[in-house]
Design a protein around this nucleic acid. Sequence first.
DNA 1: CTTCCTGCAAATCGTTTGCATCAGT
DNA 2: ACTGATGCAAACGATTTGCAGGAAG
Lengths: 141, 141
Amino acid sequence: MAEQDLIKDMLARMSSSGWRITDQRRMLAQIFASSDGYLTPKDVYDQMSVKYPSVSFDTVYRNLRMLSEMGVLEQFYFMDGGLKFKGSCLKHHHHHLICTNCEKTVAFDYCPMDKLEVPGNYKIINHRFEVYGICEQCQEV
Amino acid sequence: MAEQDLIKDMLARMSSSGWRITDQRRMLAQIFASSDGYLTPKDVYDQMSVKYPSVSFDTVYRNLRMLSEMGVLEQFYFMDGGLKFKGSCLKHHHHHLICTNCEKTVAFDYCPMDKLEVPGNYKIINHRFEVYGICEQCQEV
DNA sequence: CTTCCTGCAAATCGTTTGCATCAGT
DNA sequence: ACTGATGCAAACGATTTGCAGGAAG
């Protein structure tokens, strides 16, 4: 999807969920539409501050949380427990290969749940599979 | 390994790393030897408080961190970003099936990395694979 | 014009640090 | 006795909340 369409899509989803379209939210949509990696609340705040120097941290947090609940963003706790967000890919189930240096993220389709036989009689709800590595660019440096 | 042996093993490892064996550390070893699930720092603190009402949170944190660095405990950030600890299984590589209700944990040997072909030329460092579900006991309730 | 959203400030939670005292070796 | 470990209090970073004014519908 082109960036502009992504932004429109996000805004449309906010609107249809009954949320007002404020300048700050418009900008949030833009930030995530033009970023393919994970962003911390601080990253987002810093990017917003460029155009809205008066934006506050709590507005960023509030909107990030809301957008996650709405499914527009994916919320994610990294290995170190740090919270990050990224525009959610709604297309299909997949997992990520994440560069531990620059956090560039590549999706892949392989899902280990297909083949897994789990011990015990657990009723499976959810799973988490991520691969961490150093991307080609970061290896070169 | 029997519980008593586990405790001795933990204490021996602390001692050989040059750490003093205090009552608090003895008790930490006992707590983790007799628990097979994950414990939050608060869980640990609460258990310690029963016998040592004067124990402080920072001592718990300090020792948990130290024991993790030493490899006696496994440190783990859950899906919700919360930090937990558990006695570490040093035997072999494995993954976990975790009950989202009671957090009882079952290990299994299957590792998805065997079959995975990753896109891009990432140099793979690490991976994370967990399955979340409801255990048999928690389903019955 | 009404209701929701924002920005500010202050509260809260989990975790860490500095320091004087206490305990293990 | 020496040195590391403890408990206290205070600092700290990240996130959340209450509230009054401001903007979207």
